[in-house]
Design a protein around this nucleic acid. Structure first.
Length: 424
RNA sequence: GGAGAAAUGGCAGAGCGGUCGAAUGCGGCAGUCUUGAAAACUGUUGAAGGUAACACUUCCGGGGGUUCGAAUCCCUCUUUCUCCGCCA
């Protein structure tokens, strides 16, 4: 959520940057917000004045009662009746205006960073870095879903029986590889200085709002209506919400957390080759890294996070590229996002395995996550997060890129965790 | 799930219809003293809106109500604690 003050004072800049995100009706909505805000302050002034008057009278009555001047007190009481009605009207007006402003603010996406390339589709993303060589596979190389069946690593049909499509069952070495990835990623993150947390995987409405999933992305989350809880789509939600309604000390920053959780996504509207095998699941596992940072440092930290994720992919010996997302392909809440994509040789396509973003104060404004600066003022912190990493597509590309006629070779870094070097 | 008790500032903890944004202690910050530190002493120390700055307004778990006036009374929800039940 953008800050009202910022919109008021930097209207032109806001409009310019919203255009990069291809946000329609920007001018109409922004103008409306500014008008409502002007109105809000006027009504608030009226409300406050009436309340001040009523407070003063109430005080007088108190003093008169104490000194036994009952009649005088009664005559003042009569005056307050009128104020009471006014107070109620103004209060209601104010509430309505505030709701209207909030309803509009929630529709406005975050402003992209000045370096974000313009563009509308993934084709407009900027490829800023490539690493590794795409392996040449032997004749008869097959995609991971066939490898999974051949070596009995993942049973998609069994998942359908138990739950439905998109809920695979990992078996034997497949399950062990999942566990290896979890420990490998968590160990790496901890060594980088991230503190591991194990949060709940269901969250309440406030948490869903805090990181921006609610209200607009409601349909993407599994909702347990009986208890009004949501299954998390990413550990970003519970971990970032740790810092909801918190005023940090400047010396606490940056806060670095990591956590492993299963993630649940309804993925309504997905179909075809996108959802084949491990490409897109309803339940998957991920280690997430989250930082709460000083606004002056957040872009430096974003680069560190990007490099950290790249180092994981290098450790796993996977060919990958890094994209700087264009305005049109960025998420609602992000100010700058890097996507990391691994090349899946058997599918002959790039698979997104990580997304690293700086949200600046967009989330923290909703979360009310602030810190006290040197001058004693409270300032919104910046929040950042990244996948480090999501398991399914990593597993898919390891299986596909490392297949040989003899079996599948496990990357060296993962061998101590997996406990085996080959799947054959 | 049943019965009872409670929820106040960073923490502990008073206040139970007006003078309360809230005593006191601890913690934090600044200063005095000191070569420096500790101790002691002095001062200061919640958040939001609003203003050029004041003023002013709101917030004592959330929501609603009674009253001229609510941290204090009533209703409701949530959470915590104790006892019972169930249980990985």
């Amino acid at each position: 959520m953008l800050q009202l003050n910022y919109i008021r004072e930097n209207k032109e800049d806001v409009l310019k940057r919203l255009a990069i995100k291809n946000f329609k009706d920007a001018e109409t909505i922004i103008n409306k917000v500014i008008d409502l805000d002007t109105n809000r302050r006027a009504v608030q002034k009226q409300t406050d004045d009436v309340k001040a008057e009523a407070n003063a009278l109430a005080k007088q009555i108190g003093e008169l009662m104490k000194s036994g001047k009952k009649e005088e007190a009664e005559s003042i009481k009569a005056k307050t009746a009128d104020l009471k009605g006014k107070e109620k009207t103004f209060d209601d007006d104010l509430k309505t205006i505030e709701q209207e402003i909030h309803a509009l603010l929630v529709l406005i996406p975050n402003l992209p960073h000045i370096s974000v390339p313009t563009g509308k589709t993934p084709e407009d993303n900027l490829n800023i870095y490539e690493h590794g060589t795409i392996p040449t596979l032997h004749d008869g190389a097959i995609p991971h879903w066939e490898l999974a069946a051949k070596y009995d690593l993942i049973d998609f049909e069994l998942g359908v029986k138990l739950t439905g499509a998109g809920f695979p069952v990992y078996k034997g070495k497949g399950a062990r590889l999942q566990r290896a990835l979890q420990n490998f990623f968590l160990d790496k993150a901890t060594a980088m200085g991230y503190m591991e947390v194990q949060p709940p995987i269901m969250v309440n409405e406030d948490s869903g709002f805090g990181t921006g999933q609610l209200p607009d992305k409601e349909g993407q989350m599994y909702h347990c209506t009986v208890d009004n809880l949501y299954l998390i789509p990413t550990a970003e939600v519970p971990i970032t919400n740790i810092y909801r309604d918190v005023i940090l000390k400047e010396s606490d920053l940056p806060i670095m957390n990591c956590g492993y959780t299963p993630c649940f996504r309804r993925e309504a509207g997905s179909y075809g080759k996108d959802v084949r095998g491990l490409n897109r699941l309803h339940q998957f596992d991920k280690v997430e890294i989250v930082q709460i940072a000083h606004p002056d440092k957040s872009y430096g930290i974003l680069e560190n996070m990007r490099e950290y994720v790249a180092s994981l992919l290098k450790d796993l010996e996977l060919p990958f590229r890094t994209l700087k997302l264009c305005g049109g392909d960025m998420s609602f809440a992000s100010a700058l996002t890097y996507d990391m994509e691994v090349y899946s040789t058997a599918q002959k396509r790039w698979l997104e395995v990580s997304s690293v973003s700086n949200f600046e104060s967009f989330q923290t404004n909703r979360l009310k996550c602030r810190f006290k600066g040197a001058d004693g003022k409270t300032v919104l912190a910046h929040s950042l997060n990244g996948s480090a990493l999501a398991f399914p597509r990593i597993l898919a590309s390891i299986l596909e890129n490392n297949q040989t006629p003899e079996g599948i070779k496990i990357p060296k870094a993962l061998v101590p965790y997996a406990g085996f070097e080959m799947i054959s």
